[in-house]
Simulated assay, not measured.
Amino acid sequence: MDAVFNVNNEVFNYRVAGVLIKNNHVLLHKQVTDQHWSLPGGRVQVLEDSATGVKREMQEELGYTVEVEKLLWVTENFFTYQERTYHEIGFYYQLSNDNLNVTASPFYGEEGEQLIYQWIPLKVLNTITLYPEFLKSSLKELPTNTQHIIIK
Rank of each mutant, 00 (worst) to 15 (best):
M1T: 10
D2H: 11
D2Q: 11
V4I: 15
V4A: 10
F5Q: 10
F5D: 08
N6F: 11
N6Q: 13
N8A: 13
N8H: 11
N9R: 13
N9V: 01
E10C: 11
E10W: 04
E10R: 11
V11I: 15
V11D: 07
F12W: 10
F12E: 14
N13P: 02
V16L: 02
G18T: 05
L20I: 05
K22Y: 05
V26E: 01
V26L: 03
L27F: 05
L27E: 02
Q31W: 14
Q31L: 15
Q31H: 10
D34A: 13
H36P: 00
P40Q: 04
Q45Y: 14
Q45E: 02
Q45F: 12
Q45N: 13
V46C: 06
V46M: 10
L47G: 04
L47T: 12
D49T: 05
S50P: 07
S50E: 04
T52V: 13
T52Q: 12
K55C: 13
R56M: 12
M58H: 07
E60M: 10
E60S: 09
L62N: 03
L62V: 06
E67G: 14
V68Y: 01
V68W: 01
V68R: 00
V68C: 08
E69T: 11
E69D: 14
L71V: 04
V74Y: 06
T75C: 12
T75F: 02
T75G: 02
E76I: 03
N77K: 05
F78C: 09
F79K: 03
F79I: 01
T80C: 05
T80I: 14
Y81T: 06
Q82E: 15
E83I: 00
E83R: 12
R84E: 08
R84A: 06
T85K: 14
H87R: 09
H87T: 04
G90I: 03
G90R: 06
F91V: 00
Y92G: 01
Y92F: 12
Y93C: 02
Y93D: 08
L95A: 03
S96R: 15
L100F: 06
N101S: 15
N101W: 01
V102K: 01
T103W: 03
T103I: 15
A104Q: 13
A104R: 11
P106H: 05
P106R: 09
F107M: 09
Y108R: 09
G109T: 04
E110S: 10
E110Y: 00
G112P: 11
L115F: 14
Y117H: 13
Q118E: 13
Q118T: 03
W119F: 12
P121V: 04
L122N: 07
L122R: 01
L122C: 13
K123N: 15
K123T: 12
V124M: 12
T127V: 06
T127K: 14
T127R: 12
I128N: 03
T129G: 04
T129K: 14
L130C: 10
Y131W: 11
Y131S: 09
Y131F: 14
P132L: 07
F134S: 01
L135Y: 12
K136A: 07
S137Q: 14
S137C: 07
L139K: 02
L139I: 08
K140H: 01
K140N: 12
T146I: 09
I151E: 10
I151L: 13
I151A: 05
I151K: 01
K152A: 11
K152M: 08
